[in-house]
Amino acid sequence: MKPFETTLIVTPSDLDELNHVNNVRYIEWVQHIAKAHWQKNASSTILKDYYWVMLSHYIEYKTPAFLNDVISLKTYIINFKGATSTRMVEIYNEANKLLAKSETNWCLINSETKRPARITPEIIRLFS
Rank of each mutant, 00 (worst) to 15 (best):
K2Y: 05
P3K: 09
P3E: 02
F4Q: 01
T7R: 15
T7Q: 11
L8E: 06
L8T: 09
S13V: 14
S13Q: 14
S13W: 13
D14P: 07
L15H: 10
L18V: 01
L18P: 01
N23R: 14
V24R: 13
R25N: 12
R25G: 04
W29Q: 09
H32C: 02
I33Y: 05
I33H: 03
A34Q: 10
K35R: 12
A36M: 08
H37F: 15
K40Y: 13
A42L: 15
S43T: 14
S44F: 08
T45N: 13
I46K: 10
L47M: 11
K48P: 00
Y50I: 07
Y50L: 08
Y51Q: 07
W52C: 03
W52H: 09
W52V: 06
V53S: 04
M54K: 12
M54V: 15
H57E: 00
Y58L: 02
Y58G: 01
Y61C: 04
T63C: 09
T63V: 04
P64K: 12
P64N: 05
N68V: 06
D69N: 15
D69T: 08
V70A: 01
V70D: 02
I71R: 06
S72E: 04
L73E: 00
T75R: 00
Y76E: 10
Y76F: 11
Y76R: 09
F80C: 01
K81R: 10
S85A: 11
S85V: 05
T86M: 13
M88F: 11
V89P: 00
E90H: 12
I91M: 04
E94H: 14
A95S: 02
A95I: 10
A95C: 04
N96L: 00
N96G: 01
L98I: 13
L99G: 03
S102H: 01
N105A: 10
W106Y: 14
W106Q: 08
C107N: 08
C107D: 07
E112R: 15
E112G: 04
R115Y: 11
R115L: 09
P116H: 04
A117V: 02
I119V: 11
I119Q: 11
E122A: 14
I123Y: 05
I123C: 06
I123M: 13
L126Q: 06
S128Y: 14
